[in-house]
């Protein structure tokens, strides 16, 4: 499948500003960073989570634990859809009971990944609260899932895709693109 870039939604500067704003919003709503645990969803959610957590550490001067969650085993499309049922290790702080979890992903689309992540988190323990942070919300929800903090909201059509590039993972400049898929 070919695609062409339709629009740059965020460049590296905009990316940094969005991370910074999300960090401040999270701190405002949670009245500080006590009891917070960041959990990023593989693959890019992990790095978005680490960026926001680092920003908060700078502001609050306090270490923020960041975990990584792989939800492959909890997906509802295991038998039909997965091109590579490859699972990777989750790496969560030992005890999430009574913690305030900030769940982070790069793109919110159908909501199915978030549903899987909520189920996965519940199997690790009973957090006191889970809030969802999303870098880009592109609509087209198939489940009643909403984010608590949104970096950018874009209106997309189903034939489009939102591609997030993050330096640590993609080895190129931070950016968010809206791309058009072309059948061929």
């Amino acid at each position: 499948m070919k695609f062409k870039t339709k629009e740059t939604l965020l460049d590296s500067l905009g990316f940094a500003r969005t991370i910074s704003r999300l960090a401040h919003e999270i701190l405002e709503v949670n009245k500080g960073s006590q009891n917070l645990i960041f959990v990023g969803m593989r693959s890019r959610g992990e790095f978005v989570a680490k960026r926001i957590a680092k920003k908060i550490e700078e502001i609050e001067n306090q270490k923020i634990p960041v975990g990584v969650l792989d939800v492959t085993l909890y997906r509802d499309d295991f038998r039909t859809n997965l091109k590579q049922p490859e699972i990777r290790v989750s790496d969560l702080p030992l005890i999430i009971d009574e913690k305030n979890i900030i769940l982070v992903d790069d793109v919110l689309f159908t909501g199915r990944t978030v549903r899987a992540a909520l189920d996965a988190l519940m199997d690790y323990g009973r957090p006191s609260r889970i809030q969802l942070v999303i870098l880009v919300d592109r609509g087209h929800r198939e489940l009643p899932v909403q984010a608590d903090f949104i970096g950018k909201k874009v209106i997309t059509s189903k034939g489009q895709e939102v591609r997030v590039k993050i330096k640590e993972f993609d080895k190129e400049e931070d950016a968010v693109y809206l791309v058009e898929l072309e059948e061929n």
Binding site: L73, F78, R79, N81, L82, K83, P85, I87, V107
Partner: peptide, 14 residues
């Protein structure tokens, strides 16, 4: 068990 009962390749998912 997991890998043997793995899904079939249908379409790339985002």
């Amino acid at each position: 068990l997991y890998l043997l009962s793995g899904g079939e390749e249908v379409r790339e998912n985002q």
